[in-house]
Amino acid sequence: MTKILLRRLAIAMAMVGGLLLLTAIGTSLVSMLGRRIWSAPLSGDIELLQMMIAVAVACFLPLCEINDRHIRVDIVGTLFPAGLNRVLLMFAHLVLALVSAILVWRTALLSLDSLTYNSQSVQLGIPQWIPQAAMLPGLALLGLCALYQGFHCLVSDEAHTPAEEGNL
């Protein structure tokens, strides 16, 4: 039940990231066409692209984690017994949860500082706390998914080997 809920939340978050990515592509296209056809690119297009891509990446991370599809090097993993592989995988998921918690904490402090000091983007004057705070839900959900995956490895009897999934 928990995994289903986390997966649905991660899919919804990834859909938001996809919409942001499509918006970034559209913004870039409009700016390039404006530059080539009318010699009038969108002012601040790079600022907008940077903000949208940063938020989109944070939105995609939970889906990668709940599906256990992050890149990992399994060169020596095939040499270890399944039990040791499961422990190493559990450790990796729990470390990711810790890193995610640190990212949430520091990003929240950054967005609060940006709000307090009224930090704005250079060209468009967009308050920087907005995209910074928009990254928080994705980073927090990443941590929850990593915690789930870590504890799932701890209690699961399933042997997880790279060969089963065709990972390199």
Rank of each mutant, 00 (worst) to 15 (best):
P62Y: 05
T161W: 10
D74I: 14
L136Y: 01
L154K: 04
G44S: 12
G143F: 01
I53C: 12
V104M: 01
L139F: 05
G143A: 03
R86N: 07
V122N: 14
P127Q: 02
G17M: 03
M90V: 04
Q50P: 00
V55Q: 05
K3E: 13
G77Q: 03
M15C: 15
S100D: 03
L115H: 06
A40M: 05
H152W: 11
I130G: 05
C64E: 10
K3N: 10
L33E: 02
L20T: 03
G143S: 04
P81M: 02
R86H: 08
L20G: 04
I46D: 07
R72L: 07
M51F: 11
L88P: 04
M13W: 12
G17F: 08
N85D: 04
G77A: 05
P81Y: 02
I4M: 10
P137N: 05
E65F: 14
H152T: 03
A97N: 02
L33I: 13
M32V: 15
H70L: 13
A14M: 07
L144I: 08
E158C: 10
G77V: 02
T27M: 07
A24Q: 05
A40V: 10
E165T: 14
Q128P: 03
A14G: 07
L112A: 14
I71F: 14
L96S: 03
P81C: 02
L124D: 11
E65I: 05
L124K: 13
V155R: 08
L63I: 08
L147T: 07
C145W: 00
D113N: 08
L147E: 00
L112D: 10
L88E: 01
L141A: 01
A108Y: 14
L9S: 08
A146P: 10
I37L: 15
A133N: 09
Y117C: 10
V87F: 09
L33D: 01
L21S: 12
W105P: 10
F151N: 00
G166H: 01
L136K: 02
S119H: 14
L94A: 13
H93N: 11
L89Y: 07
S114A: 13
G18F: 12
I11D: 09
Y148F: 13
P62S: 07
V57M: 11
H152P: 00
A146M: 03
A159K: 04
